[in-house]
Write a protein that binds this DNA or RNA. Structure first.
Lengths: 344, 344
DNA sequence: ATGAAAGCGCTAACAG
DNA sequence: CTGTTAGCGCTTTCAT
């Protein structure tokens, strides 16, 4: 037999105390001042509420106020530490501001992403943070039409006016590749992430520009890959190593890519940095403890998360429209041991 | 000027079509059969719904049905890859079964955990998965009273009857330490996690029993530490290395602890495994690419997440009570290069 | 085969 | 200072 769960409502209190529901509501919502409820009544209500273990029903409240104090976060891969630390900061920050976060992993699928947006709307989330798969935008634009505030993280759409928070991927890549060049490298391969996503486009652009700035010709044959995942890093490295002239250095567009590259290198019995140098995007707690501590481009993931949350909630509460199009956070090149100086 | 968001409700449709709200509701919920709604009416309603972009308001539905199709997951540290991969599998599995998940990071604080439980109850979640901080249970038991289904993950309470899913920590530790002993180690330090949490208790017990089983005396002075975090691993290793007789091997109770240990070892100029051997709990994607590939105890994190979710949702839908107290999933020792054979 | 009406728990406009 | 009332959008019993 199921025992009835605690189901003390405003009614229960009202009936029990012979005080109207509205008064009870007002007191329990801290509006005693505003309505000048007598101290006595306040006390009675507060006591009874505590005694009966009154728990406000936020679902009812949400329906009435058309405000759920919930935001949704759609994330392409929770288990990727870059994203999980963003998720952490979003949740923490949102909670501080009185919001809960519904999370959903899109598994890098636009379909799931689109589906989830719909579901989140049915749930009446007050706003949405999305780290989009990144190649389609229609389903996201449709939120605009629906007047649901959205903020994008990491991947964004330069031609739309949806606000976003991301890293300065261009300069991050530029400094990484420059570092390689400064150490005498010329034959530098680029293992890129998902094509047509802004972070990837910007990272590759940074790569190209760094080469050009140093008078090195860009060789399209060694700009390879099409995913931020580990497998991509592995496969492309395997193939790169079969070239007549093996690149002396690798620029990896993500932490997972460099892990895959490491796996391939190891299999082929090649050493970092003696045989091949690497610089990778995304710094991780383990980066310093790898076989060769990895020189990497650190992103400010926590800050990205909290800034996005702040912008979103400001819009929800219409404290202000976020006027600028997007925010780029600086990255930082952390130099370790994975780059060998091969200047003759 | 805010444009009115899409606010097509059942009423809207009812009014527009001159069909009662109830009929519209029935059709839109796939109950046409049951109520024998005419094909014609069905079509009219379905078309209008599509045309006007009707979106069911799940908040209203939740209020009416007293069922939100939402579960909560309270997690001590989203950014810890062990937990983030659990979170991923929970969310994925829940979504498949038609549930959304509210996530909240307790930051290893019982206060926040307790607070969050309350908040989740106000939000009328249908059930709760908790990876508890682990040293207090009262606030969790109180859910029982409230008849909210709960499943615990990782840390659990042996004296309560709250169901849980966790790893076979005892055997995991036992096999890890046995491996060390098989390689000639006798002076094996144990850097443990948070005291009084079951995973820690079981891991330390496995450590002790492995020693005993091999006739090695347990030295309480080298069972140290009190947190699963990186700092704990670092600090305790630093101290251990100041002993007259430095342990020849370390058993680290978590991935973060071993990362901290690695940092200390590196600072002291010690090599793994030549100077000190290590076995660590928790296998990670990077474990194989560390300076010395880490021999580690792998947990089935995805399975833990999905099993817990299954149990929870079964209880929510009262398909069956989960009779047994808890589930222990086997671990697997992955042997790499961090243990040196020092048999003379 | 369809409709009317009640009610989930809450807030707020209005009334006094 | 407090109460009455309406209604958020939905489902479901009861009628017909």
């Amino acid at each position: 037999m199921k025992n009835k769960p605690n189901t003390t409502t405003l009614q229960t209190l009202s009936l029990k105390l012979g005080i109207s529901v509205s008064t009870v509501s007002r007191v329990l919502n801290g509006k005693s001042e505003k309505y000048r409820i007598s101290k006595k009544t306040q006390e009675i209500i507060l006591n009874a509420a505590k005694e009966l273990g009154y728990t406000p029903n936020q679902v009812a409240r949400g329906l009435r106020l058309n405000k759920t104090n919930t935001i949704g976060y759609i994330i392409p891969d929770i288990s990727n530490p870059f994203f999980s630390s963003i998720a952490q900061s979003i949740e923490k920050f949102a909670r501080k501001l009185g919001y809960l976060v519904l999370i959903s992993d899109s598994e890098e699928s636009t379909d799931i992403e689109s589906q989830t947006i719909k579901i989140f709307q049915e749930r009446k989330v007050d706003g949405l943070i999305i780290s989009p798969v990144g190649q389609e935008i229609d389903h996201i634009n449709q939120l605009k039409a629906n007047n649901t505030p959205v903020v994008l993280i990491d991947r964004f759409f330069p031609d739309s006016n949806i606000p976003f928070v991301t890293s300065d991927n261009y300069n991050g890549a530029f400094s990484a590749v420059s570092h390689l060049i400064d150490n005498g490298h010329k034959n530098i391969a680029c293992i890129q992430g998902l094509h047509d996503t802004m972070p990837n486009i910007e990272r590759v652009r940074g790569y190209r520009e760094a080469l050009k700035a140093n008078g090195i010709e860009v060789d399209e044959n060694i700009i390879v890959g099409n995913s931020f995942g580990e497998a991509n890093g592995y496969i492309e490295t395997k193939i790169l190593l079969k070239r007549k002239e093996i690149p002396t250095a690798l620029f990896a567009a993500s932490n997972l890519i460099s892990l895959g590259a490491l796996r391939a290198l190891k299999e082929e019995g090649l050493n970092v940095p003696d045989d091949v140098s690497i610089v990778s995007f995304d710094d991780q707690p383990y980066s310093n403890f790898l076989a060769t501590p990895m020189t990497s481009v650190a992103q400010q993931s926590s800050e990205i998360g909290s800034i996005a949350t702040k912008i979103l909630i400001d819009r929800i509460e219409s404290k202000r429209e976020f006027e600028s199009h997007g925010i780029f956070l600086p990255t930082k090149l952390i130099i370790r041991k994975s780059v060998k100086n091969i200047k003759s």
